[in-house]
């Protein structure tokens, strides 16, 4: 089986789907000749031509807005926004328009549109680039939100996203793009939405995360293991749809839970997870459910970001606290 990093897995999925379905069109800033600022679309324009891999003007709202029109005309657009932090300039087209068209057209215009964007910090990018604003899109309830954390999921979930009859915001973990290679099947496969991945199983505590925070939890779990604490790590994979069953079941068995995310604490999606567990697993809890998130400040300058982002150390500290409660 070939080994790929996340960049290569995404490129593999795009190549596969563009070959299989000629309605698929990739558009965004620098996706053509350059192959994307992270090279996820490298070589695609040579292979599929300038009409199917399109360098657009620098304008996020019309990248998304025209993708809506392209889909209505019968195409299957995969739009790239260079960084999730830049989607704010397309926020209306993303949430209110893309995430609503099937509904507002009474079912006449379903939109098979995928919007790809990398998210998260830890790479010392300039301001706005790393903002983890995924939860803001959850408030538009007709947008699916997928966040793979590893190469296998990146390929299978992207194929799932492009084939989904509804719009999908596909958020990629920027920090993990080239973190390492893993086995990824060369053939066609999909990873269904709404099914969380249990990355590691342990009986003492459940760590819930998505995107790059999954890797933080895995490192925390390794540290905890050396202290004799067995942690389960759950990778949600999608926020919409949300796999309540897997997290509830896990917390029912461990009795303790820490939710970890890169977005600032207040009104982050972690609050939704905590509320869900409180409603469904309350009587199994041995300790309050905790959150480890970034602080409620603007994203700090690069030299301070490692103090701001959730770290394995903070997660471990929080777990120790729960265990002594």
């Amino acid at each position: 089986m070939p080994e790929m990093n996340i960049i290569e897995a995404i490129r593999d999925a795009l190549t596969l789907e563009m070959t299989r379905d000629e309605r698929v069109i990739v558009l965004g800033l620098d996706v053509g000749r350059l192959g994307g600022v992270f090279r996820t679309t490298d070589g695609l324009q040579e292979r599929f031509g300038k009409d199917r891999v399109v360098d657009t003007p620098l304008a996020e709202a019309v990248i998304i807005g025209s993708a809506i029109g392209l889909a209505i005309s019968g195409m299957v657009p995969v739009a790239e926004i260079q960084f999730l932090g830049f989607t704010h300039q397309a926020f209306h087209q993303m949430g209110a328009q893309l995430g609503r068209f099937r509904y507002r057209s009474r079912g006449r215009f379903p939109l098979p549109v995928t919007v790809r964007a990398p998210m998260g910090g830890g790479t010392k990018t300039p301001e706005f680039h790393p903002d983890a604003i995924e939860a803001q899109f959850v408030q538009y309830p007709a947008l699916k939100i997928a966040l793979p954390s590893n190469p296998y999921d990146a390929k299978g979930m992207l194929l799932q996203a492009i084939r989904d009859p509804d719009p999908v915001l596909f958020i990629e973990p920027e920090r993990l793009y080239r973190k390492g290679r893993a086995e990824v099947p060369a053939e066609d496969y999909t990873v269904p939405f709404g099914k969380a991945r249990i990355a590691r199983e342990g009986k003492d505590v459940t760590l819930v995360a998505w995107s790059a925070a999954v890797e933080v939890c895995e490192r925390a779990a390794e540290q905890l293991a050396t202290e004799g604490v067995q942690a389960t790590v759950i990778d949600l994979r999608t926020l919409v749809p949300l796999d309540e069953e897997t997290i509830v079941k896990s917390v029912e068995s461990t009795g303790r839970c820490v939710v970890v995310h890169e977005a600032p604490l207040s009104a982050g999606f972690g609050a939704e997870i905590v509320a869900t567990l409180q409603e469904n697993a309350f009587y199994s809890l041995d300790a309050p459910i905790a959150r480890v998130a970034s602080y409620d400040t603007p994203y700090p300058p690069a030299s301070l970001e490692s103090h701001w982002l959730p770290s394995p150390e903070r997660v471990v500290r929080q777990v120790r606290k729960l265990l002594s409660a």
């Binding site: 009409d51 029109g69 889909a71 005309s73 195409m75 209110a96 328009q97 057209s105 006449r108």
Partner: peptide, 23 residues
């Protein structure tokens, strides 16, 4: 398309449809 009450939001959609027809 349905009527659009978010002003000018329909213009990118119109361009996308037109572009798609051309492609």
């Amino acid at each position: 398309l349905p009527t659009q009450v978010a002003l000018a939001a329909q213009l990118p959609h119109a361009v996308g449809i037109a572009w798609g027809l051309k492609l």
